[in-house]
Nucleic acid binder design. Structure first.
Length: 214
DNA sequence: ACATTAAGTGATT
DNA sequence: AATCACTTAATGT
């Protein structure tokens, strides 16, 4: 078991980190297997470390006081989450909700190690800073989409994102779920999807959307 | 066959 | 683009 964990770390992060650091991660990191749909962290939860994805995908979203959600970005294999990095000093609570988009394997690195390795391993410092930057940019993309794109284009973007993420043009999702991701109502998603179907962009069936054009 | 859940649609704001 | 108030279609028991 530990050897397979060490091996998957090697597979995903080996090109970035030396074997000493990989050993440290394997030793100090806490491994989690999360089933699709499961909430990994919720608004208000204490943040105990930074997650590093081994496989699968995680949906990161904002939640309004009524409990309605808005997708911010996805995390994939090799990604880390920047929001948790802002919890460096002191006890800070999560400002986002993270849900497993697929079955996911990840390792959680405790905050204490995150900071000691910053000075010990340049590659680690680089990784942390860079992933912070990438998250920030993805967040700006999400803001842009919200501010500048009409719903039609937002839906299309979202579908393409999902296709890339799942590595398949067959998406098993519902109109209601997309509506929740984009923070709108199911009825308008159904209408937008009907429109996209007329344009030949998608093929619609119950619980299934096939993206034909992207 | 019946109940439940997903999706389609016209009308209204 | 949102909401209401249905209708229709697909699926599970």
């Amino acid at each position: 078991m530990p050897s397979t964990i060490r091996q998957s770390l090697e597979d995903v992060y080996g090109f970035l980190f030396c074997s000493n650091l990989l050993d440290d991660i394997a030793r100090a990191g806490v491994f989690h297997k999360v089933a699709a749909g499961q909430i990994i962290i919720d608004v208000g939860d204490g943040v105990k470390g930074i997650p590093m994805l081994i496989s699968g995908a995680i949906k990161v979203m904002r939640v309004d006081p009524e409990g309605d959600e808005l997708l911010v970005y996805f995390l994939e294999k090799g990604d880390s989450c920047a929001m948790t990095l802002s919890c460096f000093s002191g006890e800070m609570r999560s400002s986002i909700r993270a849900v497993a988009e697929q079955d996911t394997i990840m390792v959680n690195v405790p905050m204490t190690e995150v900071s000691t390795w910053m000075s010990k391993y340049p590659a680690w410092a680089n990784f942390v800073l860079e992933s912070f930057g990438v998250r920030l940019n993805e967040m700006l993309d999400a803001v842009d989409a919200l501010a500048f794109l009409n719903l039609h284009d937002r839906v299309q973007r979202h579908l393409i994102e999902k296709v890339k993420l799942h590595g398949s043009t067959e998406l098993s999702t519902t109109h209601a779920e997309i509506a929740s991701d984009l923070h709108t109502s199911r009825v308008v998603i159904s209408r937008v999807l009907k429109q996209l179907e007329k344009e030949g962009v998608v093929d619609l069936r119950r619980n299934r959307i096939e993206v034909l054009e992207f």
